[in-house]
Write a protein that binds this DNA or RNA. Structure first.
Lengths: 220, 220
DNA sequence: ATCATCATTTGATATGAATCAAGATGTTTT
DNA sequence: AAAACATCTTGATTCATATCAAATGATGAT
C-alpha cells in the first residue's frame, strides 16, 4: 500500500483488508466458474493459478507469492476463469471488490494503485507470451529462475538460493514444456556449473551465465 | 460505453474522448519506452501490439480492432512496454488517463467499465498462454480464426468470411510458430475443405470442423 | 507496361522437444 | 522399518515444427 494517507484514511483502508483466510497446501482459494466477489492479497504462502481446457489440458498461468494480488481474472464476467491453488499453507487478505471500488473513488492513490496492479499483470503476461512464443527450453528456464530469485530477493530472501514450491511438471506447464525437458535443462545447467540443484533446492552459482542464456545480447 | 447516464453526465464523459488521432498504415501509435499519457479507443482500423527483446526477436501480443482499447500496458510504469502499429489506416480516440481516472471516481459505472476492460485483457492473455503452452500448430490457427470471425461478427461483419489484416509472419509471431508453418496449416485446412483461402481472404466453410480441431471434446 | 520487391506456398532436410520406458530418489503410510 | 506412492532423472526413439531453399504470385515504383 502506497504512502500519503492520514491515520484517519488508514482506518478506512484497513477495513478493506479486515478479513483473512487460511488455505492449506493443495487447496483451492477460488476456482474456474466460482462467483467473483473479492481480490486476495497474499500474506504468506505461495500460489499457482491455472486455466484448463474441457479435454483436461492444464496451463499454469502464474506463480504468486507474498504481497501479490490474485483474483483479477474474475472482474470481467463476475466469475473466476482460473483456479488458484496453494502450493504451501497460505494466508490471504480477502478484499471485497465492491469495497475496493468504493474506496478507490474516495482515494485517488488507492485508485492508481489498483490500476497499476492490473497493468503490471498485463505486462507480465506479455513477457510470458514472449517466453512461450520465441524462446527455447533452456532460455525459458533461465528466465524463470531469474524472475523467481529476483522476486524473492525483493522480499528479503537470498538472491542466489531458493527452494522451489512447485513440481517439475508445474514449472513445465508454466513454461510450455514437458517435465522431462525441465529436468534435463536443470541437469544441463548443473553440469555446466551454473547452478547447483538438489530436488527443489536451487543454488544459483553463476547468475550472469543464466542471464546470458536468457538474453545473449545484454551480457556480451 | 455502458448505459445509465443522464445527458449531463454524457457531456462530461464525451470530453474524455474529445481528441482524435489518425494513424497511417504501418505507423506506430505508441512504442516501447514512450511516456504513457493516454489510453486509445480504436474507432476504425486494425492494430497489432508487440514486444521485442534486445536481440531483435519480436512477439505479437495481440491484434485489436474497432471498439477495443489499447495502451493499458503503460499504466504500471508510466511508460509503454510494447509497440502499437496500425495494420491499416486507423483512427483512435485519445483518452488522457488522468481524465479517465478523474471521471472514474465520479461515475461508478465508468469505473467498473475500466476495471472490466483490464480484467478482460488479463483473461485474454491467459487463454493465449494456454494456446502457446499446450496446443499444436493447427489447433492454434483454428482458435485464432474462430476468435477473429467471432469478434468481426460481433461488429456486424460476416461470420464466415474475413480479410486478414496481418501477414503470415505476424500471425505466426502471435501464435508462436514460423510463417511457413502458418502457411502449411492454411493449406491443410483448405485441402480438407474446411476453409477457402486466397492470400488474405479467408472463407470458413465448415466452422464446426474448425471448432473440433480447436477443441475435440466440445464437438463430439 | 516492366522491373523490382515483398508475401506466400511448397518441398526437402534438420533439430529440439515430446514420448516412451526404466530406474533412482524421496516421502508418506502402515 | 518396510511397503507403497509420488517425484525426479536419464536414456532411446519418434515426431512436430524449424530451417533451408526454390518457385510462384502479388504489389508498388519507375
Amino acid at each position: 500500500m502506497p504512502a500519503g494517507f492520514t491515520s484517519e484514511d488508514m482506518k478506512k483502508l484497513d477495513e478493506v483488508v479486515a478479513t483473512r483466510r487460511r488455505i492449506k497446501q493443495g487447496d483451492m482459494l477460488f476456482g474456474n466458474g466460482d462467483a467473483f466477489t473479492s481480490l486476495y492479497a497474499i500474506r504468506t504462502g505461495f500460489f499457482k493459478t491455472c486455466v484448463s481446457t474441457e479435454d483436461g489440458r492444464e496451463q499454469v498461468t502464474g506463480f504468486q507469492m507474498a504481497g501479490e494480488i490474485i483474483g483479477l481474472d474474475g472482474i470481467v464476467t463476475d466469475h473466476h476463469s482460473c483456479n488458484a491453488v496453494a502450493l504451501e499453507d497460505a494466508e490471504v487478505c480477502v478484499m471485497p471488490f465492491a469495497k475496493v471500488e468504493d474506496l478507490s473513488r474516495e482515494f485517488p492513490l488507492l485508485q492508481r494503485h489498483v490500476h497499476k496492479i492490473m497493468s503490471r499483470e498485463i505486462v507480465r503476461e506479455n513477457s510470458v507470451m514472449m517466453l512461450l512464443g520465441n524462446m527455447r527450453a533452456e532460455e525459458r528456464l533461465a528466465a524463470f529462475l531469474l524472475n523467481l530469485v529476483q522476486r524473492l530477493h525483493a522480499r528479503g530472501f537470498s538472491q542466489s538460493e531458493l527452494t522451489l514450491r512447485m513440481s517439475r511438471e508445474e514449472i513445465g506447464s508454466y513454461l510450455g514444456m514437458k517435465l522431462e525437458t525441465v529436468s534435463r535443462a536443470f541437469s544441463k545447467f548443473s553440469d555446466e556449473g551454473i547452478i547447483e540443484v538438489k530436488q527443489r533446492y536451487v543454488h544459483i552459482l553463476k547468475p550472469d551465465a543464466l542471464k546470458k542464456i536468457f538474453n545473449p545480447q545484454t551480457c556480451i
